[in-house]
Design a binder for these strands. Structure first.
Lengths: 158, 158
DNA sequence: TGAATATTGACAACTAGTTTCCAGTAAAGG
DNA sequence: CCTTTACTGGAAACTAGTTGTCAATATTCA
């Protein structure tokens, strides 16, 4: 699907494009998977942050778990609270910053989503080899590591 | 960073999360890389669609090349034209649907971005093995293939 | 203790994409 | 031909995130 001379840099570029494509598909399929639960991929992820922490979290904590900004997480939380998935509880550590807990509905819905995700993942891996998945995961993690290095800013407004 | 029992389905789930993380980083770093050129990742991608086609394209053609909707591409094109990167030319095949060509500035800027991207990719691959990149690319492509299969819609509004 | 500093929620404006609708244009089939 | 269908740009409303500002609350530390 791309160029022929497979230098390492070219391969990395191709890998980047593959990440973009797969990312898009995953969000699309994730949305489809949970649309009957009044969820989207983003809303699901917010439920997951609290469910996996197994305790109530403040908005900034949820944001950090989701890898997005405080303000972005807050927007989702406000909607999810309105929809009955989260309930606020007073935060002993901070007057103005409540803690968010899953409601019954939130717990139940997240559990349903987990069941769907597990079934979906199982159906997908039929054609994939365990070792390939392992090494791909390792390589992506290595790429993620490398991406923490600062960008050479030659092109900056000089 | 995640759970221990490494079943294939669990590995795939972890791989999905890795794709999300790497995708976010790539967009962030891509934006930094070209910010001195009055570009963003999205604007860069639009220039690339026309540059790589080596001919003028209509808005729907550019959208398809970018993997986004016609309307999304049109928004970028309108801004990029205002900023002098694209110029419209009449489309002999359609009165109302002009064709977009890179201006001098557009060509020059895309060339600069390519230089930056190549240098960046080269600097990143130092710690990565060629074989790992190859197999990760293949696996991601395989995952992308599998993702074209329809989702089991058990959770849908039945 | 009290002053500087960091964190927080609310709000606004922005990027980047989506879906939906409209009206004009092109293409295809009878 | 001319009617139906497909394609196109424009605009609006939406999702999902960002940055930035403000005022209030916490924290740190001299």
């Amino acid at each position: 699907m791309t160029s022929h001379p497979q230098s390492k840099a070219t391969l990395l570029t191709d890998l980047m494009l593959a990440v973009f494509r797969v990312n898009g598909r995953l969000l699309e399929k994730g949305d489809q998977l949970v649309e009957g639960l009044n969820l989207t991929s983003a809303r699901w992820q917010a439920l997951g942050a609290v469910a996996l922490a197994e305790k109530s979290l403040s908005a900034p904590q949820i944001a950090e778990a989701m890898g997005i900004t405080r303000q972005g997480a807050q927007k989702q939380l406000n909607k999810l609270e309105q929809d009955g998935f989260f309930a606020q509880a007073p935060n002993p550590r901070h007057l103005r910053s409540p803690v968010y807990a899953l409601t019954e509905l939130g717990e139940r819905t997240f559990a349903k989503a987990m069941v769907l995700e597990t079934a979906w993942a199982k159906s997908l891996v039929a054609d994939l080899a365990l070792q390939d998945l392992k090494s791909a995961l390792q390589t992506l993690n290595a790429v993620h590591e490398v991406l923490n290095a600062p960008v050479p800013i030659k092109g900056a407004k000089s």
